[in-house]
């Protein structure tokens, strides 16, 4: 797995960057969002559950959100994950 990215900084989109971590480091999620107050926890939750479903254990997720809906977040995350795995 290598560092990979998906998404844009357009309104209603999210840009997700994944960086591989050492085994045992766990999942680290950093979120920057214009709706952090209102939806920060919701964004965190959808990223965490999507990673768990995909069986990813050690990764650093940097998410720059511009008001994306859940399905957009999930799609961008899965695409980034796909790219990270292909790059390996």
């Amino acid at each position: 797995m290598k560092t990979a990215q998906a998404g844009t900084l357009e309104s209603s989109d999210i840009m997700i960057t994944l960086s591989p971590q050492e085994p045992g480091d766990g999942v680290k999620i950093d979120i920057d969002s214009n709706v952090l107050h209102q939806y920060g926890e919701a964004i965190q939750a959808v990223i965490a559950s999507t990673l768990a479903e995909a069986g990813v254990k050690d990764v650093w997720v940097k998410a720059v959100d511009r008001g994306a809906l859940d399905y957009t977040i999930k799609a961008r995350l899965l695409t980034a994950l796909d790219r990270a795995r292909r790059a390996a």
Partner: peptide, 10 residues
């Protein structure tokens, strides 16, 4: 339903 209910801003 699309966006979820926003949390109130303190």
């Amino acid at each position: 339903k699309m966006a979820g209910k926003p949390k109130e801003v303190p």
